[in-house]
């Protein structure tokens, strides 16, 4: 077939040849990828077990208490945390609460329309909530203000600004970065029993109303979860797939490990390829490597912020 012969002599193609390659990529995606996978690379020359370039920017949104913008390749997520006061539940008087919401606005992808929300959004939202709570990253007792009367409710909203594969990874990283950036505001109790914020200048003058939390605090983390999504195809494991790859090959495995080495979640939902133990072990090893990478990137961006 004419198209496959043009693939064979790919190195010496001119503009006319380029069009054939693009058409081949759309019409026969599996064969197009097989050519590259046989040499352990992907079409953009990324090795199979490398993730895309990741950048974290802390504090892009100024009207909230903590925010972060994360880009993994082209997938962009914006996470923001707003703290509001609530009365804690009767059986847990010392614990705050967390509500996670993941939105995919029509901006992010051509498949999402204003009337038709993305199917995957509530699923990712629930998975994020489960992972963040079960990894023990947040100590809810730190979110308590007055035992039994007032505690912080953290509303974490994550917006997908561009969907290009590995949405869960980017969302989890943005949530973690936003929590690292979070500064709990200073509050005190006024005469009506309501909690109000105290602006910095009034600190010295406040006499009888003691400040409920002493300084603009950052939360402390026991262990931070990081995730990696891999795609399984025949015998290959592709780390951090793009949206195009996810469309073609449908077996996804998402592994979440935390900084103390525990497996927080291993999510594989169906797919054509069955995973055997050795594949699972490889995925977990890749995830651990990626967790170390992401930890460094997060620490770097935190320290950059301290300097400013």
């Amino acid at each position: 077939m004419a198209s496959s012969s043009s693939i064979a002599s790919k190195g010496s193609l001119d503009i006319a040849g380029e069009m054939e390659v693009e058409a081949f990529r759309r019409l026969f995606p599996h064969r197009y990828y097989e050519h590259y996978l046989a040499q352990s690379v992907r079409p953009d020359a990324r090795p199979l077990n490398h993730a895309r370039e990741t950048t974290i920017a802390l504090g892009p949104v100024t009207s909230v208490d903590g925010s972060a913008l994360v880009k993994i390749g082209e997938s962009t997520m914006l996470a923001a945390i707003k703290l509001e006061v609530m009365t804690p539940a009767a059986d847990l008087p010392d614990k705050g609460c967390l509500a996670v919401d993941f939105y995919m606005p029509p901006v992010c992808s051509p498949t999402v329309r204003p009337g038709r929300p993305a199917e995957i959004a509530p699923v990712i939202s629930k998975k994020l909530q489960d992972v963040i709570v079960s990894s023990g990253m947040i100590n809810f007792e730190e979110l308590s203000l007055i035992s039994g009367k007032a505690a912080w409710m953290a509303y974490l909203d994550i917006y997908c600004l561009n969907a290009d594969g590995s949405l869960f990874d980017a969302a989890l990283l943005s949530a973690v970065a936003a929590f690292s950036h979070l500064k709990v505001p200073l509050v005190s109790v006024n005469d009506n029993g309501r909690v109000t914020t105290v602006p910095g200048e009034l600190l010295e003058s406040k006499s009888e109303l003691e400040l409920v939390n002493k300084e603009r605090r950052k939360l402390s983390f026991k262990s931070i979860p990081f995730s990696l999504t891999c795609l399984l195809h025949n015998k290959y494991i592709l780390a951090d797939p793009t949206a195009e790859e996810e469309d073609i090959m449908d077996t996804l495995v998402t592994v979440v490990v935390d900084s103390i080495g525990q497996l927080v979640s291993l999510y594989k939902a169906g797919g054509m390829v069955l995973a055997n133990t050795s594949t699972v072990k490889d995925c977990v090893a890749l995830a651990k490597r990626r967790a170390a990478e992401l930890q460094n990137i997060l620490l770097e961006s935190l320290s950059e912020m301290e300097v400013d």
């Binding site: 079960s134 490990v257 935390d258 080495g261 594989k268 169906g270 055997n276 133990t277 699972v280």
Partner: peptide, 21 residues
Amino acid sequence: HGIITSVTHGAMPVHDYFNCL
């Protein structure tokens, strides 16, 4: 022995997961 689906809930050490399998 291949896994079709695996959904975990809660954090556990890696070797415990393989014992579960």
